[in-house]
Design a protein around this nucleic acid. Structure first.
Length: 565
RNA sequence: UGGGGUGUCGCCAAGUGGAAAGGCAGUGGCUUUUGGAGCCACUAUGCGGAGGUUCGAAUCCUCCCACCCCAGCCA
């Protein structure tokens, strides 16, 4: 209850306002029943997550029910593989359909009967027009259509023909069942839409039982009705299908859900169109639907995103009817916020350069304590190794540093995280001028990373002990596209022209601390000063592979960028 | 030039006739053994535009403008 009050003061979205009103008036006996109705013709993406979170979130808040229903009415595009991935993704996101997993194909017999009923009340007819002819007869946006010459067939003839359609007596495309509505309606959806088409194609669930398949518009609203859905939430483009749904439901005199439309999600620097995502997959521009650069649920999961962070994102973007483009920075903020509290800190050097601490004993090894998570004391500590030779990041050293660079450079003292202060004394290069060794001295008094004299160092570096490393592979990801709106490319370009060639960098020679040796697939860590990473499914015992989920916020990089501009 | 929608800060988004919420991004500062995290502050005399109603308008009325969706036997 308190939660509700708080929600209200923050302003609830217009859909929840409608539900509140319906509950007050008792429109559906205060029942709230939603559903998520995907077509199994591709993987779910973050836009679907928005819908799932909306539908399921409402159900949790109102104590209602939530169905998962596959709208599988087009056998030529749908596959069991997609059904399986969708079930996995919805479950991973945390939505619970209990025992209500349905398929529109479960209703084929019922739907067929509804269709016969329409014929029997004179509201549907068999049309012999070809696809092209139907288009011609439909008219245009500004001109009304013409009645089909087959529009006035008798009920008996229609019924007979429809049964013959079902019996397989006609070839694909030879006939359709059409609603008899109004060919001059300004709403093209009402110009005698097709209800059933002939498709001699096996269905992933019903096999070859059917050779006629109902169209989406007919199936969808009736499926919602059959399931006693109260609020059918869908995206804006179905707004002018609503009169058609109302028409079907009214003609058949059956239970009538309330459809409410909201704006679909657009995310910057990526693409959320199943057709285009399929194109990326089929052209091998990405490794698959679950490529960590893909905006699919499977992609985000593999990338290291948590379901919590995606739900948080979906709650933050809100629900409205205005077309919008959400900045992907918000999604990144959500995963950082989650992982900051939950990911253990470890040290991994991505691009190693050797540092020799000349005054540290040759054969000595110390095992020092490292706090796992400064944000969560209960996360505990682990041991890290320290010895005379260590590796640090190549970009944590500069011979001639710019102003405000407070990492390692000749004469400068920095802190090695959890270990000692070191001061750079010398640099050794090879014949190409490449730095191969950095020499330092350390202050034994600074053990643990502080000194009794309280002197300050500005820089703190991560490192690994040279003799105590785990070699790992690291995959760095960036946005898949270089422009904010690849869906709306400038000039005569296409989204393909803006694929980011730097969206994946594979680093094969990274060095991790021993603590990571036992990391398992899916484990998430913060690599200190580098970002959040998770163990990829490509990982094996001999080759640990980490995906960078997201970088840390990097004010130094930001400063550099500004200077270079 | 048909119909259906939408316009509030760089990006989302509350607001439903009585002082323009909040988040992200950005900026400045404090703090910090991650240039992380955290904390504080700043950022719309203005709500697509023009008129009108009203003591009072982002909210009501009129006209205009811009953008999105619809002419699959796809969903």
């Amino acid at each position: 209850m308190d939660d509700n009050i708080e929600e209200k003061s923050k302003g609830i979205d217009f859909i929840r306002q409608i539900i509140d009103k319906d509950n007050e008036t008792g429109k559906y006996d205060s029942r709230v029943h939603t559903r998520f109705p995907p077509e199994p013709n591709g993987f779910l993406h973050i836009g679907h997550a928005k819908s799932i979170c909306l539908n399921y979130g409402i159900v949790k808040e109102y104590g209602g029910k939530f169905n998962l229903r596959f709208d599988d009415t087009n056998p030529s595009k749908e596959e069991t593989e997609y059904v399986e991935s969708i079930i996995e993704d919805v479950r991973w996101l945390g939505a619970d359909w209990e025992n209500r997993l349905f398929y529109a194909s479960d209703y084929f017999e019922q739907l067929y009967e509804y269709a016969e009923r329409l014929i029997k009340i004179g509201k549907a007819y068999i049309c012999d027009l070809s696809a092209d002819e139907i288009r011609e007869y439909r008219g245009t946006l500004t001109e009304p259509g013409k009645n089909s010459p087959y529009r006035d067939r008798s009920i008996d003839e229609n019924l007979d023909l429809f049964r013959k359609m079902r019996a397989g007596e006609f070839a694909d495309g030879e006939k359709t069942l059409r609603a008899k509505i109004d060919m001059s309606s300004p709403n093209l959806n009402m110009r005698d839409p097709v209800i059933y088409r002939i498709l001699h194609t096996a269905h992933h669930r019903t096999g070859d039982k059917w050779c006629i398949y109902p169209m989406y518009d007919f199936t969808h609203c009736l499926s919602d009705s059959i399931e006693r859905i109260t609020h059918s939430l869908c995206t804006l483009e179905f707004e002018d299908h609503r009169p058609l749904y109302d028409w079907y439901l009214d003609q058949l005199e059956i239970y009538h859900p309330q459809q409410i439309e909201f704006a679909r999600l657009n995310l910057s620097h990526t693409i959320l169109s199943k057709r285009k995502l399929l194109q990326l997959v089929e052209s091998k521009m990405v490794s698959g639907w679950d490529d960590p650069r893909m905006p699919t649920i499977a992609g985000f999961r593999r990338r290291g995103y948590t379901p919590e962070s995606i739900r948080d994102f979906c709650n933050r973007i809100g629900i409205a009817k205005a077309d919008s483009l959400v900045d992907i920075a918000l999604l990144e903020h959500c995963i950082r916020e989650d992982l900051n509290v939950h990911a253990n800190r470890v040290m991994v050097v991505l691009d190693p350069v050797k540092v020799i601490i000349d005054n540290y004993p040759d054969d000595k090894v110390e095992w020092l304590d490292a706090v796992n998570n400064p944000e969560d004391e209960s996360a505990g500590t682990h041991k890290i190794a320290f010895s005379r030779e260590i590796y640090i990041e190549r970009d944590d050293f500069m011979e001639n540093p710019p102003k405000k660079y407070f990492r390692l450079y000749p004469g400068n003292e920095v802190r090695l995280k959890h270990a000692y202060y070191i001061t750079c004394t010398d640099v050794v290069k090879d014949e190409n001028g490449e730095i191969i060794e950095i020499h330092c001295t350390y202050d034994p008094e600074s053990i643990g990373g502080g000194t009794v004299d309280g002197r300050r160092v500005k820089g703190t570096l991560h490192f690994v002990s040279a003799k105590h490393t785990v070699p790992v592979e690291v995959r760095l990801y960036e946005n898949l596209f270089t422009i904010p709106e690849p869906n709306n490319p400038p000039d005569d370009k296409t989204f393909i022209d803006f694929i980011n060639s730097d969206s994946l960098k594979i680093l094969k020679c990274c060095l991790a601390e021993p603590y990571l040796a036992n990391a398992k697939q899916g484990d998430r860590f913060q690599f200190m000063r580098r970002g959040y990473f998770c163990v990829d499914i490509d990982s094996t015992e001999n080759n640990l592979v980490f995906n960078r989920t997201v970088t840390l916020r990097d004010t130094w990089a930001k400063m550099q960028k500004k200077i270079s501009k």
